[in-house]
Design a protein around this nucleic acid. Structure first.
Lengths: 207, 207
DNA sequence: ATTTACTAACCGGACGGTCGGTAGAATTGT
DNA sequence: ACAATTCTACCGACCGTCCGGTTAGTAAAT
């Protein structure tokens, strides 16, 4: 059935990424602990023993999914946004790109926030360290806005967590088939984060 | 050791609330699925069989904790806020009171958002229905702000989810021993939700 | 004598993971 | 060209462990 020769350097073969994707979906639906290896095996048309031909352990599978998700986050959100010099535009880019990643089909990115406890301490540390870099990047952007006097008087640590809260809650309520499109929602979240809920006429603008 | 006679109508006796509290803590730390009944039993100095003298099942214990949490949410956040006529003051009250509930010691309230999947469908529906009432209450408040022209042009559904995101993310990063006190953080979140991150001079204020 | 508040021992079942084996494709020896 | 060998991609059956939950019994209080 295979039409192409196996390439010399192929870090992930055909079946493995299929397993990762399906596993991510099932972990997302049922939770890591509530998902059995037989569940995953059945979803990719294998027996449990057959599944273990491709992976080392359940925890290892989770770790692989999370590493994949971190790479997506870095290449699709962090790296493109880093290139933007203006901090306000950069902040908008972060929210938009991260929002897009969270609403598109791939479920790996949501597992990244919900199933950290499933990892062994050493692996958990690795993921947490990479997340920390992202956090510092966002807070740094807010700090820059502060020095340019474009930020209201808010604590940038709390503000960063507030942004993440808004974003990371998104996959829990977003329904792709719903009336609100993901682009609508992302635009709204950008507005809310930057401008808040209330009309300017009520808030005293500070220079 | 018991100093008081058992009251005639005592829906929760001494030991039971101790079990609920400890169970909520452990569920919060380890997750529902990853917590065994022996874990909980040991934490309240009982054997597993002894624990089952007080509770019906693991799922029932979770349901009891969630009902307790919903009651707290209703009496500490929803009911007091409902009495506030001005929608802006009401919104601030909701954020403050909910934030306070999430940062105080009691972990039941965080289980409410993180462990819904542990419930059987019928119980889950019950909790979800009560949550829905809360959601509609908050969105209704935003709608009122809209008709009073005090709201920026944002979709109130998305805005409500954004507020919940900010709030419900709080227990994941808040450390009681940290530099930021819970009251500091709650005040900041109120500012961010109502006024946003950016300085007014950059945003065109609409009347 | 009965009820309350437990415990030690146990049960069926599901789980993560392993093992021995094998059909078929690919590779090699001649 | 073809047989012998090796390798890839799997499967059925099984293992030890732990889990949620039960049962029979008991010491102390009422």
């Amino acid at each position: 059935m295979k039409t192409s020769k196996k390439p010399a350097i192929a870090p992930e073969c055909d079946r493995t990424i299929d397993i990762y994707t399906k596993a991510a979906e099932i972990f997302h639906e049922q939770g890591f602990d509530a998902t059995s290896m037989s569940n995953i095996a059945a979803a990719v048309d294998l027996t449990k023993a057959g599944l273990y031909y491709y992976i080392e352990s359940k925890e290892d599978l989770l770790f692989a999914i999370m590493n994949y998700a971190m790479e997506r986050l870095e290449t699709m959100v962090i790296e493109p946004s880093r290139e933007i010099a203006d901090p306000e535009a950069r902040l908008r880019s972060i929210i938009e790109r991260h929002g897009r990643l969270l609403t598109e089909g791939n479920k790996a990115i949501t597992i990244l926030t919900d199933e950290i406890e499933g990892l062994k301490p050493k692996h958990r540390r690795q993921i947490l360290d990479r997340k920390r870099v992202y956090f510092d990047f966002v807070r740094g952007t807010l700090d820059e806005l502060g020095t340019k006097n474009e930020l209201r008087e808010v604590n940038t640590t709390v503000a960063t967590f507030a942004i993440f809260g808004m974003l990371l809650w998104l996959p829990r309520w977003f329904k792709p088939a719903g009336r609100l499109t993901s682009e609508d929602i992302i635009a709204e979240l950008g507005k809310i984060a930057t401008g808040g809920l209330l009309n300017g006429s009520h808030e005293a603008a500070r220079a």
